[in-house]
Design a protein around this nucleic acid. Structure first.
Lengths: 229, 229
DNA sequence: GACCCTAAAAATGAATGCAAAAATCCCGTA
DNA sequence: TACGGGATTTTTGCATTCATTTTTAGGGTC
């Protein structure tokens, strides 16, 4: 706890549940969440001081976290001028989706063969919940479930490197939702695509699943691009 | 300069040529090079003190660099027990190559359409130099040129996100060369594959180039896996 | 010698301090 | 009022310091 003489024990209660994680490790996830949520607008300076207060840490671990976030593409470090929230640049959407398409394909190819029945069952549950959220018009929930759907599918690939990279890309793309908010518009279409994804997964047909995922990705990208013109 | 009262100006001459880069930014690249080169054996503790002396920096920027390298997968942070060079685990080779295959495919699909004639010419030059190095038996040079060949091809995709991720994966895989040293054995075969890659690139046939790259990747992975049994 | 316990030493993680750079403010001039 | 420009404040990057934890060393017991 900066500026105070509190011991580590006294500070402990402030940390997240994951007790063995380092201060800096938690910070990366928490600050990334702030950036992805849009709580800090893109392009604005990252207020080191404020964040230090907010998380009750000194500048050292905070700056460590910022370096990691910069490597991930959420933050831009400007020498001697501090860090800013990575500006949202429409020109970045295309390469992001293009990159994601490669990952989606690999997820399809591998998950079709490696997903456990339990995992497929879990995905179907999320799929149903997605439908319910759409009917209710609860787009916030819909969005969260949609994120989980794809994240779980990625996890079914059993490839940790793929899963991790996919997650970063998903979050980077997710930052652009303010520009478009495609979910409200594309909800039904998206749900139908998910339907086919589930079917291909159940059938365990790698190429088919890969194509469904690529198609879904492409349609999402198109919806976003269209909203920009 | 730790432990001394030297001013920043006086320290400046110690930095690399890229004057506007931060201390930490240089460190990431330099330490990664040390890890990829194998100068620090895998699994060994990273000697903060030594590295601080070597690069004439304090622990603060050094530790910032280690956090980034941990996020990239070159280093493992153990809470309260320091950082170690990420252990080489044969079980990691498969997911690494699998992930790379997805990137190779995308590189093929995009580079075939986006590579400039100049870039293709540059690749052909490297290809010829590769041949010369193979004939000379200069495997160190061969290896360097091979790295550049694929790196340049990735760059021809004009997708910065792809290029960056590809580079990290390539370096992570490169660490396993000590286990195998596949290049000496697979030199000729690899050269023939490059030949076809160049042809497909010249022809600007996306699917063909993608398949050639995936095949090349798969053969490399197989050679590595075979050497492990 | 093997085992275990304790104490000194070293390393780690994070807070604080400090010099340089940047941003802001203030005021004079046109 | 618009526009410098120089002093002041803030921020930044890094070095240093400090509290804990871990590791190592030493010594007693069996």
């Amino acid at each position: 706890m900066p500026k105070t003489g509190l011991s580590k024990d006294q500070q402990a209660h402030l940390q997240l549940s994951d007790g063995n994680a380092s201060l800096h490790g938690n910070l990366v996830a928490q600050i990334r969440a702030i950036l992805v949520d849009g709580e800090l607008a893109d392009g604005t300076r990252i207020p080191e001081g404020e964040l230090c207060q907010r998380f009750n840490v000194s500048r050292t671990p905070l700056r460590e976290a910022l370096k990691v976030l910069a490597a991930e593409g959420f933050v831009v470090l400007r020498p001697n001028r501090g860090a800013i929230v990575a500006p949202l640049d429409p020109a970045e959407i295309q390469p992001l989706f293009e990159f994601k398409s490669a990952l989606e394909r690999l997820i399809g190819l591998t998950a079709a063969e490696r997903a456990s029945d339990t995992e497929i069952g879990e995905l179907e549950k999320i799929h149903l919940a997605l439908d319910a959220a759409a009917v209710d018009g609860d787009y916030k929930l819909y969005t969260r479930l949609n994120y989980m759907f794809h994240r779980n599918l990625a996890a079914a690939s059993k490839n940790a490197i793929l899963t991790q990279n996919y997650d970063v890309i998903q979050q980077r793309i997710w930052r652009y939702r303010f520009i478009v908010n495609e979910y409200e518009k594309r909800c039904q279409e998206s749900f139908a695509e998910h339907e086919r994804i589930i079917i291909a997964l159940r059938a365990r047909t790698p190429l088919d699943l890969a194509e469904r995922l690529e198609f879904h990705n492409r349609r999402t990208a198109e919806a976003m691009s269209a909203a920009l013109c």
